[in-house]
């Protein structure tokens, strides 16, 4: 075959639409592999660190020789060769789950009831208040840190059970955020539920609360799950408020505990940190991936990951 005909053949193949498409997909797949490597490398690396019993940043390889679950056992802090003063991993995990669950349930109830009023009732100041809620969210509570600290300190002088270093005090502060963007999400969803449902209840003589509780609440399940999960993850991942309000190692949340644990001599705690990080992150990761479509829907309404 002469060189001219080879070039012609090449031209014919490459100009065919099918080839172009395949070529483009192949290139994009290669790019995808690179991107995925960038995206999951830290996760693989932490998995490998967790399984490497040598527990050291310095010597770690991607495939650990003699892999074992030693680091996970060390989280119990009972291994005399790897004893870490204030490591109370399971207490921290429990604290986090407890605080996040209570906050989520309480704030969901406050949010849902408020959203019902905004969606179904007409009253003076309704629109102003809705706008105000949107505007207040602009100021992150991070900026009022000193004030929140003083507030909880003073509250604790009066009722020690809601003061500094208590979970109740922290939960109260989280509650302050329940009149937030989630009201807009919930109200938007409520607006899509036909009024005819309310009216049928009214004809039967049901009160507003009965309509809300017995007729509307069951229909709100999908959005309740999405907002609930987002709010649980948000509280679970919160660091700074818990960091300044809690100061006793048995009161820490997981995020505070892990941060304080890793301060100083990180390289000698690396494997144990990795094991703790995995246990703390995996349930959240799986939930997110399983519900990514619903959550993405909620996000485009304007929330930014905190």
């Amino acid at each position: 075959m002469s060189s001219t005909s080879l070039a012609q053949t090449y031209q014919r193949i490459s100009s065919s639409k099918k080839f172009q498409e395949r070529f483009s997909i192949a290139i994009r797949l290669v790019i995808a592999v690179f991107l995925i490597f960038f995206s999951i490398f830290p996760v693989l690396w932490i998995l490998s660190a967790a399984l490497d019993p040598r527990n050291s940043l310095t010597t770690q390889d991607l495939i650990p020789p003699n892999w074992s679950f030693d680091n996970f056992l060390r989280l119990f802090n009972k291994d005399p060769n790897f004893s870490f003063g204030d490591l109370k991993y399971w207490t921290w995990l429990w604290n986090s789950v407890k605080i996040s669950t209570i906050s989520t349930v309480l704030s969901l109830s406050l949010t849902t009831m408020a959203a019902y009023a905004f969606s179904r009732l007409r009253f003076a100041g309704r629109i102003t208040l809705l706008k105000a809620i949107l505007l207040i969210q602009v100021f992150p509570n991070l900026l009022a840190l000193v004030a929140i600290y003083v507030l909880i300190f003073q509250a604790g002088q009066i009722v020690p059970a809601i003061g500094l270093n208590t979970h109740a005090g922290l939960i109260l502060v989280y509650m302050g955020g329940s009149m937030g963007l989630n009201i807009w999400l919930m109200k938007g969803f409520l607006d899509t539920i036909p009024r005819a449902i309310d009216e049928s209840g009214m004809i039967d003589g049901a009160s507003n609360f009965q309509i809300f509780y017995q007729l509307l609440l069951p229909l709100l399940r999908p959005i309740l799950i999405v907002i609930g999960i987002l709010s649980f993850i948000g509280t679970y991942g919160d660091f700074i408020l818990a960091r300044i309000l809690l100061n006793d190692s048995s009161q820490y949340t997981l995020m505070v505990g892990l941060q304080i644990f890793t301060a100083g001599q990180f390289d000698k705690k690396w494997g144990v940190f990795a094991a703790g990080a995995l246990i703390g992150a995996l349930p959240i990761m799986i939930t997110y991936l399983a519900l990514q479509d619903q959550i993405a829907g909620g996000l485009t309404q304007g929330a930014v990951k905190e």
Binding site: A32, L35, I36, S39, I40, P42, V43, I233, Y236, G237, M255, G280, A281, I284, M285, Y288, L289, Q292, K305
Partner: peptide
């Protein structure tokens, strides 16, 4: 590709 977003 979403993974970085899903971990605290």
């Amino acid at each position: 590709l979403l993974i970085p977003y899903t971990i605290p």
